[in-house]
Design a protein around this nucleic acid. Sequence first.
DNA 1: ACTTGTGAAACTTTTCACAGCG
DNA 2: CGCTGTGAAAAGTTTCACAAGT
Lengths: 235, 235
Amino acid sequence: MTDAPAARRGIPGATVARLPVYLRALAGLAATGVDTVSSEELAEAAGVRSAKLRKDLSYLGSYGVRGVGYDVVRLREEIARELGLQYDWSVAIIGMGNLGHALAAYSGFATRGFRVTWLVDEDPNLVGSRIAGLTVIDMDALATQPPAGLIGVIATPPTAAQSVADRLVEMGVHSILNFAPCVLAVPDGVEVRKVDLATELQILAFHEQHARAELGPLADLAAVEVADARQEATS
Amino acid sequence: MTDAPAARRGIPGATVARLPVYLRALAGLAATGVDTVSSEELAEAAGVRSAKLRKDLSYLGSYGVRGVGYDVVRLREEIARELGLQYDWSVAIIGMGNLGHALAAYSGFATRGFRVTWLVDEDPNLVGSRIAGLTVIDMDALATQPPAGLIGVIATPPTAAQSVADRLVEMGVHSILNFAPCVLAVPDGVEVRKVDLATELQILAFHEQHARAELGPLADLAAVEVADARQEATS
DNA sequence: ACTTGTGAAACTTTTCACAGCG
DNA sequence: CGCTGTGAAAAGTTTCACAAGT
């Protein structure tokens, strides 16, 4: 019954997270005029192994042709549909600091199915000003016209992030992208993804340190040793 | 032999990725004067389950006290050491567009063990200008003084990203944070982490669409349907 | 002949549940 | 008694290898 041409509820999360990468790779291939691609080639373009790619695509259904490969246009459509990109989703960016500014101006959203529709800040000096073609409003103004399916992007300082999240949830938002370096508490049914820049660097630092340890003592480290008030910790 | 007070090579990747979150939670607790914390409390602050937290910490060694909990200062030091944060790592940001600018000005790096030391761009109009207290240089200038342990942050357009990565690798960098929406090919031993903003939104769109499907047909969708040249696909 | 789609195996990560220790 | 640390079970993810289809 529910066995129509797509996967029955339950595409693994790891697969969902890779679909955007495949989509990007397919867009690149389409742009260069390729119209059929093998799992081997597409996997190469996406930076994964071909078996993984095939397994991932198998969750969406059978869109390949054995002995031939995948039709670039068709596969692109199927993935886009699975991701819900037949709609142009509205995005509200909250917090117009450096990062909020950069996000508002980022052209990569528009080209990939998203429309930045609201820019929000609480600072009265910013409210009313124009950034990237939009007028900055405050949270109250946003709350008067919250569209269903809005995605909220939090780019405030961490101290403000939780209360912004609360207000977004209150107005019916259930997808949030959080750039503030803090944990957000939200009710069930609200999906939060986080991007923490310092965290990413710390993970790299771990690998850097351990790669280094293979090669011998950390003698030639140009990274500056922290030699400051660390005494208070040891005394 | 190699059984000193830390984990023997092989902390799971999933655990490493969470250590920065624990570190942040501990910093928060330390700031409010708490000096002992149970796995339950710390897990709550970090947004994970306590069993997972304890398992993660067990890879670092036994730093808790049964019946009591963990010493906040001690645990913080141990995690920081494991992540290699006893050093201040140098960071070079390549690509001084909107995002590069925002990253250069981001104060969150300095407070978490990283020092943005070089800003790089190829545009002659930018080279020599000052951003966030630093003078913008070009890749050639960076190549003349590449410190060991440098972390490269790529914030260029995707078309330039691969060649920037190649040059970074050439000068001995083996940790790269890539903001450009493309796959980078690098040799073994070079660690690349990527942050793709549109990808994150697409993953949210997937969940948004499927959460919505639970509640019935997509009637009240305020996300604008893409009603353009999609006919060519159906005809 | 060639490439997909997929069971089964291998590996990783999370969760459970309780022994062990302060 | 309470909380950590950890084996063992469960769940999730990746890889293998080949049968099945064109």
